[in-house]
Design a protein around this nucleic acid. Structure first.
Lengths: 220, 220
DNA sequence: GTCTATAAGGCGATAGAC
DNA sequence: GTCTATCGCCTTATAGAC
């Protein structure tokens, strides 16, 4: 028996949730690859193994599907930055943040590309998130970094641009994966490039932002 | 008088070139903002101030327009990396490359987004360039950097991932401009963020890759 | 060279049977 | 809940007058 639409947002059956899960998984696959405008409901229906009208039974419009997907993915996406801790050791926190972000680029490239596509095209659906929750989160973490600077634990630098540089360098391996693989050539095994990236980036950020402050220059 | 299509590629009149110029400028505006699939010929025609059939007189298909645009923009886009010189001082070369790339992000953000859109969606139209000319160029520059490393002029690191990190950090300010502006907030005047980025990135890369090798740690 | 008109097909969304 | 059929719009591309 059909359940009225209004009730769906309040209480959903297990089956409904499973179907929505399948649809959103397919939507992630398609939206992340071709962007919102480049994607069609047909493509998503194909991937989901369902008919187009059936998809539109669960999500009334293409936009609703996209919005639901964004909402669903956004939480996990911001988690690494939230985990950034003021009490920890700066070098350890920095490295662990880089590592986490690289792992996400490796394990959840579609999520990264979903947001990249969105932001690249002007972020029409999430501009509110960027100016609200995201900005507040960055402001909060920027204060942590400022405190480290004032305490002499890391070099003086602009905390916000430091965060940008971590975002860009790590997400690059998800968003521009085709280019990375093309430039590195075919001699690579599996996920080697992520290991190499981790090593390079940890060195870059640690030596660039931390080491010169409190560690004497000993070995090369 | 209509000139046969076949002749257009061989010899074009000034007027034809000017018209094509206008169309490609409009195409850049639209394609860079919405990606290939999200863009319509109508939108490009509007921006160009011409009728849709008129556009299709100069470029027979939407794909042809896109291809011509990519070809046209690609040359300038690779120039900064080509200018990377083995004979120069590593610190100077590195800084000047970063500065150049940041200037391009500031002055030609549409070109950056055009490629970002393309690569993000799997680079269907330029995969050949990535695997051919781009890879070769990077290979060549990687050797320069390797030579610097062996000469003890910069720290040991992976040259290709070093190039990736410069690309990603600088292009971030073009491709994700909306997000950068949202996070930095409204208190910014004009292009301040590019100045801040230049300062941060030069410090990061110089201290992270060069200074520890041959400069004693004196001042903080 | 540029226009209006239109063909041909893709797409989002709905109708209604089951 | 899921299907087939279809509406109505948008988009690429062409035809043909000027």
């Amino acid at each position: 028996m059909a359940i009225p639409r209004a009730a769906q947002t309040l209480r959903r059956t297990r089956i409904q949730e499973e179907k929505e899960e399948i649809i959103l998984e397919a939507a992630l696959e398609v939206f992340s690859q071709r962007g919102f405008h480049g994607s069609t409901i047909d493509q998503i229906a194909d991937v989901a193994g369902m008919s187009k009208p059936n998809l539109l039974y669960y999500f009334r419009t293409k936009e609703a599907m996209h919005r639901a997907l964004i909402d669903r993915v956004l939480e996990n996406w911001l988690e690494p930055l939230k985990a950034f801790d003021a009490d920890g050791d700066p070098e350890e926190e920095l490295c662990s943040y880089i590592r986490r972000k690289l792992e996400m680029a490796r394990d959840f490239p579609r999520e990264s590309r979903l947001f990249a596509n969105e932001v690249l095209q002007g972020a029409p659906h999430i501009i509110g998130v960027l100016e609200g929750p995201l900005k507040e989160l960055v402001d909060e973490k920027a204060e942590v970094i400022e405190a480290w600077i004032k305490a002499g634990k890391i070099r003086h630098c602009d905390p916000r641009h430091m965060i940008f540089s971590i975002w860009s360098t790590t997400q690059h391996y998800a968003d521009f994966d085709v280019q990375v693989k093309a430039v590195l050539g075919p001699g690579q095994d599996g996920d080697d490039r992520f290991e190499q990236a981790a090593q390079f980036l940890e060195q870059l950020f640690v030596d660039g932002l931390i080491r010169p402050v409190d560690v004497a220059l000993a070995d090369s």
